[in-house]
C-alpha cells in the first residue's frame, strides 16, 4: 500500500515539477523545478528496486549537471519581460518541432514489440543472490566490456574536443610555478649587507 502511495506521490510531483520547468517565468526557478523532477525520478528508481541507478542519478544529474546549469542560469542577465515578448513568434516553429517529436514517439510506442525473453528480466530489477550494484557491474564490466570501453573513448574524445575548442594560449602571461616557489630559500631571496654608519647599503 505504501509503495502505491509513494509511486503516485513521486509521479505526480515529478509531472508537476516537469511542467513547471517550462512554465515558470524565472529560469532559476525552472532549474530548481528540474532538480525536483530528478529527485522524484530517483524516488521512482528506488521503488523499482534499482537503488544504484537512483543514487547515481542524484550524484550525476543533481549533484553535478544541475549545479552547472544553475550556475550558468544564475549568471545570465535575463530580462524576463523581453523574453516573454518574443516567445509568441517562436511558437509556430517550436510547436511544429514538438508535434513532429510527439508523432514519432506515438508511432514508436505503437509499433514497438518487446522481446519476449526480456519480460522476465524487466520484472526483476536484480537477479537473485546479487545486489543491484553487482548485477550492473557484471553487465557493464564483464558482459559488455568492449562497448563500455568504446563509449568511454567517445566521451574522452568529446572531452578533449571541448578543451581544445576553449583553450587559448596568451603570450606574455607570468605564470606561477609552485616547485620554483617551494625551492626558494632565504639565501636566494635576501642578502645581508654590513652597512657602515654614514653610508648606504
Amino acid at each position: 500500500m505504501f509503495q502505491t502511495i509513494a509511486f503516485y506521490l513521486f509521479s505526480a510531483v515529478m509531472l508537476v515539477a516537469a511542467f513547471m520547468v517550462i512554465a515558470s517565468r524565472n529560469p532559476v526557478h525552472s532549474v530548481l523545478f528540474l532538480i525536483l523532477a530528478f529527485f522524484n525520478a530517483a524516488g521512482l528508481f528506488v521503488l523499482t528496486g534499482a537503488e544504484f541507478l537512483a543514487m547515481i542519478l542524484v550524484v550525476v544529474y543533481v549533484g553535478a549537471v544541475a549545479v552547472l546549469f544553475l550556475f550558468v542560469v544564475m549568471m545570465l542577465d535575463v530580462d524576463f519581460v523581453e523574453l516573454k515578448k518574443g516567445a509568441l513568434s517562436y511558437l509556430p516553429t517550436g510547436g511544429l518541432l514538438g508535434l513532429a517529436l510527439l508523432t514519432e514517439l506515438v508511432i514508436v510506442a505503437g509499433v514497438w514489440r518487446m522481446a519476449p525473453a526480456s519480460h522476465a528480466a524487466l520484472q526483476s530489477a536484480t537477479p537473485a543472490g546479487l545486489s543491484n550494484t553487482q548485477a550492473l557491474g557484471r553487465i557493464l564490466y564483464t558482459d559488455y566490456i568492449y562497448y563500455f570501453q568504446i563509449a568511454g573513448l567517445v566521451l574522452l574524445v568529446a572531452m578533449i574536443g571541448a578543451i581544445v575548442l576553449t583553450l587559448r594560449h596568451r603570450p606574455g602571461v607570468r605564470r606561477q610555478s609552485i616547485p620554483v616557489q617551494n625551492a626558494r630559500t632565504p639565501e636566494m631571496a635576501m642578502e645581508l649587507v654590513d652597512a657602515k654608519p654614514g653610508e648606504g647599503a
Binding site: L32, I56, V58, V59, V62, L70, M74, S131, T133
Partner: peptide, 24 residues
C-alpha cells in the same frame, strides 16, 4: 541500505544547493 556510501555521497553533493540558492 546496500548503497549507503553512495547515498552519503549523493546527499553531501547536494549540500551545495543550499549555498547557491542562498547566494542567489
Amino acid at each position: 541500505i546496500n548503497v549507503g556510501i553512495l547515498y552519503l555521497f549523493a546527499v553531501s553533493s547536494l549540500g551545495v544547493y543550499g549555498i547557491i540558492m542562498a547566494g542567489w
